[in-house]
């Protein structure tokens, strides 16, 4: 998956109308809530075989941090 593909997928995962980039701060997104975190967990596991924990998400601040976790 390319970075652009990842960003497009994250728009859908987060159900957001914002244009996302790697520097987008997660807490700035109105849609960033518990359900978005769970959706992102499932997305990472299904597409990158990466298992995450709530502790991981406490440390992630940007979309780029999620991409790094995915190995991109």
């Amino acid at each position: 998956m390319t970075i652009n593909e990842f960003l497009n997928e994250m728009v859908d995962v987060l159900q957001t109308e914002e244009d996302l980039n790697m520097d987008t701060v997660l807490s700035s997104l109105a849609e960033w809530d518990s359900l978005s975190i769970m959706a992102t967990m499932a997305f990472l596991e299904k597409n990158f075989n990466v298992k995450t924990t709530m502790k991981d998400f406490r440390e992630m601040k940007t979309i780029g941090d999620i991409a790094s976790k995915a190995g991109l």
Binding site: Q15, E31, D33, L35, M38, A39, A42
Partner: peptide, 10 residues
């Protein structure tokens, strides 16, 4: 309620 729909599918 798209997020909850997604959660239940997951």
């Amino acid at each position: 309620n798209k997020k909850v729909v997604r959660f239940h599918k997951m």
